[in-house]
Design a protein around this nucleic acid. Structure first.
Lengths: 159, 159
DNA sequence: CTTGAAATAATATCGGG
DNA sequence: CCCGATATTATTTCAAG
C-alpha cells in the first residue's frame, strides 16, 4: 500500500472530481505552492496512485444507450487464462472482473441496442471455454463515475 | 441523440483516453487548428457529450482494495423512490443501477476490507424498503475504466 | 520537501474569412 | 464552422532555503 499524507489525499480527491483544476487552485486548498503540487502529482503518478486522466463521455451521446452486466461461466480448462485477452478485444466490454460465486467472470458492457446485446451475447457464447452466459439489463443508472475516495476516509485498518 | 461528425468522435476518443492531451496534439490528429478544437470541446461540453474530466485513482492505493457488487431487493412501497438519495450518501457505493430481473438495484462498491463489506451489507439491510441483499465479491479485475467509444464505432443503427 | 522566479507552453478570446 | 494572431494563464524547471 502506498503511503499518502493528508495533502496527497486531498490532491487525489480534487483531481478525481475534476482534473482540469489548476495547480494554483489545488495549492490554495491544500496550502502548498503550485510548484509543490506539481511535484506531488508527478510522484503520485510514479507511485501508481494516479493512473491516468480521462474525460467522461456520455454513452448515450455516442450511441451506446444500453448498459448490461453479463455473467460468464467457463469450463475448467486452461481456456480460462486465454479468454481474458479475447474479451479485451471486444470494444463493447467496458469492465471484466473475476468473481467468486455461481459464475466466473462478470462483464459490464455498453451497446447501441438490445439487438446488439443479443448479438454480443451470441458471440460470447461461441467463445472457446465459455459454457454459459447470463445478461442483466440496466433499466436506468441512478449514478456512476463517482469519486472513489470519500473525502476524509476514516483512518487505516491495521492489518 | 447528439449528432457528432467524425472530428467530434475522434476528439472524444482521444480525450477519454487521456484528457491531458493538448489541443495542438488533438488538432494534428483531426486536421483542425487548436482554436477550432477548443471551440468543439466547449460545444461537446455544452451538448452533454463530454460530462467531465476525472483523474483515475487506484483504489488499492487509497486503501480500498475490495470491490464487490451488491444486489438489492426492495419492497413495493414508495421507499423505492426515496432509497436512491439515501444510497448516494454512502461514499463506498460507486455505482447504482436499476435493473430488470430478480433484483431491483445493483450496486458497485469499494471498501477497505471484507469486514467493511460485511458492515456495509448490514447497514444496507437496515434501510427502509430494503428486504434483501446479496453480495458478489470481485476476486480480481482483469480490466476496467476502458474507453466507452471504440475508435471507429460502426455506423448508426437506424431506428 | 518546499519555494519563488524565470522560461516554456497551454488555453481562451476575437476579428474576420 | 474555421482560422491566425494576441492576450491571458498554466505548467515546468531550477537554484536555493
Amino acid at each position: 500500500m502506498i503511503q499518502l499524507d493528508e495533502a496527497d489525499r486531498t490532491i487525489l480527491v480534487l483531481l478525481q472530481q475534476d482534473d482540469r483544476q489548476t495547480y494554483v487552485q489545488i495549492g490554495a486548498q491544500v496550502g502548498l505552492s503550485p510548484a509543490t503540487v506539481h511535484d506531488r502529482v508527478r510522484k503520485l503518478e510514479r507511485r501508481g496512485a494516479l493512473m491516468g486522466y480521462q474525460a467522461r463521455v456520455s454513452p448515450r451521446a455516442v450511441g451506446l444507450p444500453v448498459t448490461a452486466f453479463i455473467s460468464l461461466n467457463l469450463d475448467g480448462g486452461q481456456s480460462c487464462r486465454s479468454v481474458t485477452p479475447t474479451l479485451e478485444a471486444f470494444p463493447e466490454i467496458e469492465e471484466c472482473h473475476s468473481v467468486a460465486g455461481d459464475t466466473d467472470l462478470l462483464l459490464k458492457v455498453r451497446v447501441p441496442s438490445t439487438e446488439a446485446l443479443e448479438e454480443l451475447n451470441y458471440r460470447l457464447k461461441c467463445l472457446e471455454g465459455v459454457v454459459r452466459t447470463q445478461s442483466l439489463i440496466i433499466l436506468s443508472t441512478r449514478f456512476e463515475d463517482r469519486p472513489r475516495i470519500p473525502a476524509p476516509l476514516g483512518r487505516e485498518e491495521h492489518v
